[in-house]
Design a protein around this nucleic acid. Structure first.
Length: 415
DNA sequence: TGTCCACAGGAAATACGGGGGT
DNA sequence: ACCCCCGTATTTCCTGTGGACA
């Protein structure tokens, strides 16, 4: 009897979820889950909608000389994150290699991805791996040897060699060395026609380069502007079509997401994230995606940002944040002063076996938390009774708890 | 109006840590 | 393996200050 009841309940519940399905194909809401051909398919549609039309035209005219067997300059792409630098150039290079294949023009295209920072040695090592002349992270090998290996890989190749270096500014130490090799030495050492394509989100990236290299570097520059609302609408519509139930989205939602994203950052990836979490919320509530859902999703993302930020923050900053939360809880007051938080902090440090900083450094950390808007700390004068900083936390208490728990979790991991 | 509290925050000194050279 | 150098984190020291209070 009871069993059937439970069974019925489960079935009924599942049916309602299926009936209310908002998301048909979850994978199209998360780029990382898409396989390569699907990514290209999405890209194709985006570019067909005339998004990044100007940039593609510029890039293609930059590479056009290759078709006449001429040697184009290097190319630099600037633009903030999520403006499609990488996608656009990858898409273009793929098409371009097809064209060249048809016309029997030899091109060799490689994509060196430096999205995580690494020193010169590892960057060159990665390049050598791409060219299949070295295994990963060989230690105890001199830079020179790696360079020679790279040169030997290209020694017999007389065609065009296009090397796309994503996020160049991530080469930390000895950036000069890395670039001197690519820009000056390599083209002279090998018979290939080397064309470098740099992408970076810092426009002044080349400024603090060794002037000798800089003067050698002849390149075209192309700036990717942040997407405008219309572009974002195109991009979002494609995702909606692929991923969502057509009836699950109310009018105006795409426009709203596009407008919000355009106003805040112009980052396509983050716009898709907003769409995705709106869809998830709607599905959980068994409703359609409305503009209110979008607001909720935006709030949730904002919260996650705080939690994420504190999780990856330095240990000391986490400890101070925890102390602030604890202190406000303990005092049952809206505002606390530096010294009472400092006492709680000292206590917390000894419990969590973290080194305790001096008061002066502590003050700076409080300021830092203020800058990141975790707390508000303003100096008030109490006249005869001196001056203090008044510390308030105007995050919702639920979020404060979440932050505090995250920090605790972080400290337990370390023990 | 002047005093003086109790801390803020600047500057200099010092400790620390990572990378490169030998 | 060792040292040196340099940039960053932290400490030590110290001066500055808004306004309540007498």
């Amino acid at each position: 009897m009871e069993n059937t009841n439970v069974k019925d309940k489960i079935i009924k519940n599942m049916d309602t979820v299926v009936d209310n399905a908002v998301i048909i194909n979850r994978r199209y809401l998360d780029d990382e889950q898409l396989i390569h051909s699907e990514q290209l398919e999405v890209l194709e549609e985006i570019f067909n909608a005339n998004v990044r039309d100007y940039e593609i035209r510029e890039i293609s005219s930059h590479f056009a000389p290759i078709l006449r067997n001429d040697h184009p300059m290097h190319l630099a792409l600037w633009g903030k994150t999520g403006t499609g630098k990488t996608l656009t150039i990858c898409y273009f290079l793929k098409l371009f290699s097809d064209i060249c294949k048809k016309r029997k023009i030899p091109v060799w295209i490689e994509h060196l991805d430096l999205s995580t920072p690494r020193p010169c040695f590892r960057a060159l090592n990665d390049l050598a791996c791409l060219l299949n002349v070295s295994r990963k992270y060989k230690r105890g090998v001199s830079l020179e040897e790696i360079m020679l290996k790279i040169e030997s890989a290209l020694a017999e190749y007389y065609g065009h060699f296009i090397l796309f270096i994503d996020e160049v500014d991530n080469v930390r130490t000895d950036k000069d060395n890395f670039l001197a090799f690519l820009i000056r030495r390599l083209p002279q050492a090998v018979p290939s026609k080397v064309i470098l394509v740099f992408a970076s989100n810092r426009i002044n990236w080349a400024d603090n380069l060794d002037p000798r290299i800089k003067s050698f570097l002849k390149m075209n520059e192309l700036i990717f502007k942040p997407y405008d609302a219309v572009d974002l609408q195109h991009i979002l519509k494609i995702r909606v079509k692929k991923a969502l139930h057509p009836k699950s989205i109310t009018p105006g939602v795409i426009e709203k997401i596009a407008a919000m994203s355009c106003y805040e950052h112009g980052d396509a990836r983050r716009a898709v994230v907003l769409l995705s979490s709106s869809a998830h919320i709607a599905e959980k509530n068994g409703s359609r995606i409305t503009t209110e859902t979008v607001d909720h999703a935006a709030q949730e993302i904002e919260r996650d940002k705080y939690v994420d930020m504190i999780r990856t923050a330095p240990v000391q900053l986490q400890a101070v944040m925890a102390a602030v939360v604890l202190c406000i809880r303990k005092m049952h007051k809206a505002t606390v002063d530096t010294y009472s938080v400092y006492d709680v902090y000292k206590n917390f440090c000894s419990k969590a076996s973290v080194r305790c900083l001096a008061i002066r450094a502590f003050r700076d950390l409080i300021n830092e938390l203020d800058i990141y808007t975790f707390i508000r700390a303003r100096v008030i004068s109490k006249g005869r009774y001196g001056r203090t900083r008044e510390i308030v936390m105007d995050l919702p208490s639920e979020l404060a708890d979440k932050i505090y728990n995250t920090i605790l979790l972080n400290f337990q991991m370390k023990k």
